[in-house]
Design a protein around this nucleic acid. Sequence first.
RNA 1: UGACUCAUGGUGUAAAGGUAGCACUACAGAUUUUGAUUCUGUCUGUUAAGGUUCGAAUCCUUAUGAGUCAACCA
Length: 556
Amino acid sequence: MSEENKVLNFIEEIVEDDIRNNRHGGRILTRFPPEPNGYLHIGHAKSICLNFGLSMKYGGKTNLRFDDTNPVTEEVEYIESIKDDIKWLGFDWGNREFFASDYFQQIFNFAVNLIKQGKAYVDDLSSEEIANLKGSPTIAGTPSPHRDRTVEENLTLFEEMRQGKFKEGEKVLRAKIDLASPNMHMRDPIMYRILFTPHHRTGKEWCIYPMYDFAHGQSDSIEGITHSICTLEFENHRPLYNWYIDNIGIFPSRQIEFARLNLNYTVMSKRKLLQLVKENLVSGWDDPRMPTIRGMRRRGYTALGLRNFATSVGIAKRNNLIELSLLEHSVREDLNKIATRVMVVSDPLRVEILNYPKDKLEWLQVENNSEDPNSGKHEIPFSATIFIEQEDYMDNPPPKFFRLTKGGLARLKSAYIIECVDVEYDELGKVSSLKCNYFPESKSGSDTSGLKPKTTIHWVESNHALDISLRLYDRLFTVEEPDKQEGDFKEYMNPNSLVINNNAKGEPYLKTAFLDNVKHFQFLRKAYYVFDQDSTSDKLICNRTVELKDTFSKPK
RNA sequence: UGACUCAUGGUGUAAAGGUAGCACUACAGAUUUUGAUUCUGUCUGUUAAGGUUCGAAUCCUUAUGAGUCAACCA
């Protein structure tokens, strides 16, 4: 055991304890149980990493199980995307792919079992009537007039429910537990309801469907799940989870709850994300501003970055609000190691190098990534006209500005040192171009000039420059907790969450890289970028994944 | 004002009665042909009040604050 393994979260402690006590023979089986009614988000990623991580750590397995017990909201479309996202994240469930709907017959049999024990009954009351008789947390519920039907009567009625002899809402099957329980979930919860909507897998075979509480734990038990990990809002369901298992007498899976992930400046509920998509406030589930796995992937976040993030947020029972900066840190950490360095000028300022021969062109070697010695090199052109970043030149620099100024020096990355000798302005008085001289003996790698410019700036040669479209993404909301504000959360959307820049100039290698399927880049001194899926070799579109840390521009 | 759960720096997470640690953030400094990376350092914390104990973040009591629950959703 290494040092880091000694710090266990509370679930790992439970698992190690179970292994120590030889519970289930030391077998560990977890599951990830998505409902196929939406796309996976970063919160699901935390759960996926937890469940798969746990089984990998303790020599167990993890099942993928679709919790498809509500045909009204579920669609096949989501199943493929969910599987795709889990694979992309880097996890493999092998052949352990299951559906709660596969267990409908067994779950039905469990219900019959409870009816026979006198622990379940068919109720004719409407949804409203049942709710009204349920009482409140401080007031006990009132029994339904149908609570004491005979076993035979219940058996017949339930079978008739199954045969489709009743309309939707006409009858339900309820567990007979305790109408006075302080836990509302124990007040004769509904086990089955009638639904004539065809199911995406079982078609019209069934017209009665088990409720979550009578399907999830049963599926866990059928699969022999040892640790059924869910989020905190199911804490109050645990007594019911256990009651069903105890009373049916099936494999005792154990439910364990942990705090879901909350990220600031975003929303995480499927319902709200769906709203953003439906109302076209984002371009889709894979909009790079979305906290969905697809969105983050399109944004350029890496699977490893996301997995590391999931690990670093930790597992506990206390409600949390994670700062976006931790996510960004995790992503940068990975990208720093793998991103190919290129030069792209987002706001070009033309520079003429007066003492460089007008028709000369040289190709210079640059490293793909100085962090990775095996990443190789590529070539960039250099000539008498180049672009640099507008913000890298100032007439009247503030103190501590050490980029280019009139009469000042700067190193062009991987090329020469230049000195600014003259400045031209447009009619508005804005700097329109620079005249510089270069120092031939200052060439990168063989510099004998003895000059020590205070900084190195990025640049792009003008004749070979590629026009690049940049999509600059920022946080989707202007407030930390959009859900907790007054009024509609959508009022707090950040109007600048997407800014498109079509003026950027990139080095020609970008096109080669695109054709070579290189994905992640660091645009030197600016940010990490990824090619958007809409790119073609003639029109490169880059999504800004995350900016580089910048300790200079902060003070303003 | 019912039940369940939780409470440690700005954020997140450890410390199983014995030095309050780690990561992120922020701020310094060093290195740097990216104001990045890397390295070093600094700031800030046990919700409150009692109790048990030689000793309490940890155990007990009470208070306070927060979350969840009264869907034929999951």
